[in-house]
Design a protein around this nucleic acid. Sequence first.
DNA 1: TTGAACAGGATTGCATACAATTTCATCGTT
DNA 2: AACGATGAAATTGTATGCAATCCTGTTCAA
Lengths: 237, 237
Amino acid sequence: MNQADGALPVRDDVQDDRAQAIRDALHNAIVERRLSPGAKLVETEVGELFDVSRTVVRASLQMLAFEGLVKIERNRGAFVAHPTPDEARQIFESRRVIEPEIAERAAERMTEADIRLFQAHLKDEERLLAERGPNARRAAIKASGDYHLMLASVAANRILERFMRELVARSSLVIALYGQSGASSCARSEHADILDALVARDGKRAAEVIRNHIDHIEEDLDYKLAGNAPLRQALCL
Amino acid sequence: MNQADGALPVRDDVQDDRAQAIRDALHNAIVERRLSPGAKLVETEVGELFDVSRTVVRASLQMLAFEGLVKIERNRGAFVAHPTPDEARQIFESRRVIEPEIAERAAERMTEADIRLFQAHLKDEERLLAERGPNARRAAIKASGDYHLMLASVAANRILERFMRELVARSSLVIALYGQSGASSCARSEHADILDALVARDGKRAAEVIRNHIDHIEEDLDYKLAGNAPLRQALCL
DNA sequence: TTGAACAGGATTGCATACAATTTCATCGTT
DNA sequence: AACGATGAAATTGTATGCAATCCTGTTCAA
């Protein structure tokens, strides 16, 4: 685990301990692709896993549904979301709207301590990319997303931060479905470029680099690859 | 009721009819200020009102909590949110990030039919502002927010639209708490100015007008007015 | 072989019951 | 009178039960 783990599950505020815990666990599982898009999440099954009743499980599934990570279909249950190409485009469009502005604000507020955190995180990302094995790969994917969330956290706007958390998580689903290059986790050097701009306190440049970064991520997608869609969704039902 | 009513409760998708209905009802009540910030929402009470069990009420309260309209405190219950000045600032900062971009996209996509809808809505807003009485006032407040949501709907990005729905609703709470001029519903002519820019397909100008509009709304606030805070929140507990 | 009909099991939607916690009024003490 | 303790009522958190719905595999007819 990298040191960002403690800081990242920035829950809005602690309200519902157990449901939150399950939500976080499922969230991570989805983002790290241990759960594939379309996978069914059976209430009793999850409940037994975490040793809680369906009531609590339901609450966490509803939370995830709000974030767009899970889709709840009436009388059919909860499934890991399976974004359509159109949704995917909207996700990246939203990121292009929000993230450059976040970068500008982050450039203003960046402290020395933040810089050190970012540098350490970059090191982690590099290390994980060098490692082999599916677990390292999963960790790399997560770390890559976490980088963007660290940015959001420095910008000191909890609302935009929450929006970004949702968008980053859903991006991970999109990449899982439509990503071509196995790497998929963003071209690593760009994260370093962003940090450079931040350290230089050059908000405009940071924003520009982020914009390019998002473009590059989306360029690596092929929306033709309908993934192995759950069919029901492939046909847009 | 104005003709926008049918179009506006843009639910993400129909999943949970009854809980959604209660959510919408509470949402409207909050936005129209029939429920004040800090008001307690007792589960059994709401349940009896809508003739459903606490289970369903709970689901809708959780939805509202996600939107930031309601705050759920463990073992204490659900309360209409009571945004702090800091939260208020973040809400408007977020709007300044998102809404100008929405305006630009809306300028591109605006159809003749949309224009007619906007014109009709503007007429409604004017009429409501002219009328007397608390109900007209409430309707005017809601219509003013709905204008911004119509904009978001034209921009054709469901995600940003949802973000805007949350931000507009929370803005309404902020204005209820910290607004000075009784009018509070935004300087009306500015909505017309926005429409002008959209009709001219001048995205940049629309964005600029929106930015000013948001500035004006926020200028009318006085964060010193701590409102009649529920004390627990006034002391930031 | 295909397709419709149907039964059994699995799963969800919702109401309800019970335990844990908070709230509030009362009472006694200083 | 002010304050703290105490217990009952109110309210929430969670588990569980039942009805409704969906899924799956089988049978039977075309």
